[in-house]
């Protein structure tokens, strides 16, 4: 049962990580244009370097 001392913090940490990523994406307005983002991935623009 001592393993719980590791497993529970790990699972909570992973959950918190996921939540953090979601909030970061939300703050960065990544859910504003879902249709456009689905299309943009197909475009060859900015394949070599990120958009300034």
């Amino acid at each position: 049962m001592e393993i719980l001392a590791i497993l529970i913090p790990v699972s909570l940490g992973l959950g918190a990580l996921g939540l953090g990523a979601f909030l970061w994406a939300l703050r960065g307005r990544q859910f504003e244009d879902p249709k456009g983002d689905a299309e943009r991935i197909l475009s060859k623009d900015w394949d070599d370097r990120p958009r300034p």
Partner: peptide, 17 residues
């Protein structure tokens, strides 16, 4: 809308854990 989404996200992750 973003406000509700954020609350959904928080409660979703809490629910899973």
């Amino acid at each position: 809308g973003r406000d509700i989404l954020m609350r959904i996200g928080v409660s979703g992750f809490a629910m899973m854990n």
